[in-house]
Nucleic acid binder design. Structure first.
Lengths: 150, 150
DNA sequence: TTAATTTTGTTGTATTTGCAACAAAAAACA
DNA sequence: TGTTTTTTGTTGCAAATACAACAAAATTAA
């Protein structure tokens, strides 16, 4: 059995750890960059959706986003037609650090892909997207309380 | 810029989340399966090494492993020639659940790789190993307090 | 339309995580 | 040899994470 998930876990933890250390400089605490990036990319998104994208528990996302708001990186806005949801938008402060986050992420990407040809990179991203598609279905299934049988 | 690390982060969090939910059945709390697997695979390994393999903070590993010990999954043994290190070994209880962890991980692997050909799987694991090699150098560098320049 | 279900958001609580700081043994150095 | 540096392990503390449980709005079903 090829240990795909082990490799992926190692890579993910290492990169996340590096990012968290590097973003302290911008007063972003652990994990916050993930949320801010998504909100900058999709202004008006709601937190439930952010949690789904990142694959993190709803309540974790709620608290991280609350903190981003308290620290002035984003704002929550009521919706005209839907009293339940709160749309999320980056503030000027949030928008300002977005490029720094991108730059860091791009650097990590570049380092990670060192020694791979263009073709191999294309290939890798394609394979990973397919794997992610497979995995996210299972995640939603299990998160909703269903039991996988195997 | 191809967002490799984003895909990897999503996959890793989703799979880890699934595993944590599924292993509660065996009285393993969050993250513990990672450590137990490594100790079962390399009896006599020290916790510093385990942290390095998993790519997790030393102190986090220390506490997870302490808990594994308290709950009777592993034991720490003194070394003959080196008073500083403590070698880690699975107990009978630890060895007993190891196959269940393997089975779950194998299932997640299988699900993750659904729709990929044998060749694509070979290719993916090869690419991931190279990426992991790149990333782990950076991780150790940053973890030691060094600053990446970019 | 009313009733049942799903979606979205929140808070209480327990646990995990990781940084900082410390200590002691071992290894490297001079 | 003695001194410095590295390795390994620990604890205090602050923060993140996630499960459970709840509430209210929106959607679906009857």
């Amino acid at each position: 059995m090829k240990e795909i998930l082990r490799e992926i876990g190692m890579i993910a933890r290492a990169l996340d750890s590096i990012s968290n250390i590097e973003f302290k400089e911008y007063d972003l605490t652990r994990g916050q960059y993930l949320y801010l990036v998504r909100i900058c990319e999709s202004p008006g998104i709601i937190q439930e959706k952010v949690a789904e994208l990142i694959k993190v528990d709803r309540t974790t996302a709620a608290r991280s986003i609350k903190k981003l708001e308290m620290n002035g990186f984003i704002v929550k806005k009521e919706d005209e037609h839907n009293k339940k949801i709160k749309k999320l938008y980056p503030t000027a402060k949030g928008k300002n650090i977005f490029p720094f986050i991108k730059r860091e992420n791009d650097h990590s990407n570049t380092v990670a892909l060192e020694g791979l040809s263009e073709e191999e990179i294309e290939n890798l991203i394609d394979l990973l997207k397919r794997v992610r598609g497979n995995v996210e279905k299972n995640w939603e299934f299990v998160k909703k309380g269903n039991k996988r049988s195997y």
